[in-house]
């Protein structure tokens, strides 16, 4: 039993954190809300250059041969920065699923995806595929996995409350992949959970910072116990969600028999953490947090979206109940 990450894993996390701090400030996220694609100008290429985009691909396909335990820290960073790029769909779900499936689809797409030359999208079969218009191949995950090339598909776009998430209904000629759909779903749920933790951490950090410098009645509002306890409760939720999320990543990487149950544990805890973080952040900011100009809502709305996708807390709690035989 060893919960520690290796020096290499920590260094990779720090490198990605530095990159995102420089290249993904709130202005960049805000720009993605307003442009045609919902994505950034050049960040995906920077991430590809660092090896992040294709890290989960086997080395034989040009990737780094890394697994979920390597990726989970980077997903937390992506959440922390509200990165508007398809790290979940492409790197956490698309590439490992194609690698598992093999065959002609993998032959056609895997190496290009690993190199960042082709982008993979993903969505639940009965839901939306975010950013599908900027992708080349979309995986629709239900009882089976259908791979739809975007070039020949029809797309219907909807707006998300998070302006950088462009939601698409995807319909078109599909190839059914020879891959485990339940595993692909769990990869997505666990990745969403990791991003939820990152979003929640950012919401907490910025709210702590704000509460320490906002004065009312001659004192920082963060010195009042009512505010302190809101923030302590949020910190508690994050503290107890994060290890469960990392454990879920390990379960996927090693094929643990209780994988689905423990991915559900992670997603339910992370969803509850980010939901509380968003509520607390808004309440402790007061009216300034309720404005469109202030950056807080970029994270709040990302949190709302990620909490709900790939099974919300209630859905995953039901799955846990069934796994426990109740």
């Amino acid at each position: 039993m060893d919960f520690s990450f290796s020096d290499d894993q920590i260094m990779f996390q720090e490198a990605v954190r530095d990159l995102l701090a420089n290249e993904c400030p709130p202005e960049v996220v805000r720009a993605a809300w307003e442009n045609d694609t919902g994505r950034t100008d050049g960040l995906w290429a920077s991430l590809a250059e660092m090896g992040v985009v294709g890290m989960t691909a086997p080395e034989s396909a040009g990737g780094l041969g890394m697994d979920e335990t390597d990726l989970v820290l980077l997903l937390e960073e992506a959440g922390r920065a509200a990165l508007p790029e398809p790290l979940l769909e492409h790197t956490a779900v698309g590439i490992p699923t194609l690698a598992e499936a093999g065959g002609s689809v993998a032959e056609a797409w895997l190496e290009r995806a690993a190199a960042g030359e082709a982008t993979l999208g993903a969505g639940p079969d009965d839901g939306y595929a975010p950013g599908a218009a900027t992708c080349d191949l979309v995986l629709l995950i239900g009882g089976q996995i259908r791979a739809v090339p975007v070039g020949s598909a029809s797309l219907v776009e909807h707006r998300s409350v998070d302006g950088s998430r462009r939601l698409f209904e995807v319909d078109g000629d599909a190839v059914v992949l020879d891959a485990d759909a339940a595993l692909a779903f769990d990869r997505a749920a666990a990745a969403a959970a990791a991003q939820c933790v990152g979003v929640a951490q950012h919401l907490l950090d910025t709210t702590v910072e704000y509460a320490a410098q906002r004065f009312q009645f001659g004192k920082p509002v963060g010195s009042y116990q009512a505010v302190k306890h809101h923030l302590a409760n949020t910190a508690l939720k994050i503290e107890f969600a994060r290890p469960a999320v990392r454990h879920a990543a390990w379960c996927i990487a090693t094929g643990e028999p209780d994988r689905s149950r423990d991915v559900s544990l992670a997603k339910a805890l992370a969803a509850e953490a980010v939901d509380l973080a968003a509520r607390t952040a808004l309440q402790c900011h007061g009216a300034i947090g309720y404005t469109f100009e202030y950056d807080l809502h970029l994270w709040m709305k990302r949190g709302w979206a990620l909490s709900a996708v790939w099974g919300d807390a209630a859905w995953h709690r039901n799955r846990i109940a069934e796994a426990l035989g109740m």
């Binding site: 039993m1 919960f3 520690s4 994060r242 290890p243 990392r246 709690r317 039901n318 109940a321």
Partner: peptide, 28 residues
Amino acid sequence: RRDQVVSAWMGAQAYRWQTYATEARLRG
């Protein structure tokens, strides 16, 4: 009521993983 049971089970599991994570921090 089943959901309340799940909630309690989740709390115990969350504590378990957080404790093993803390153990690694202490060992470090």
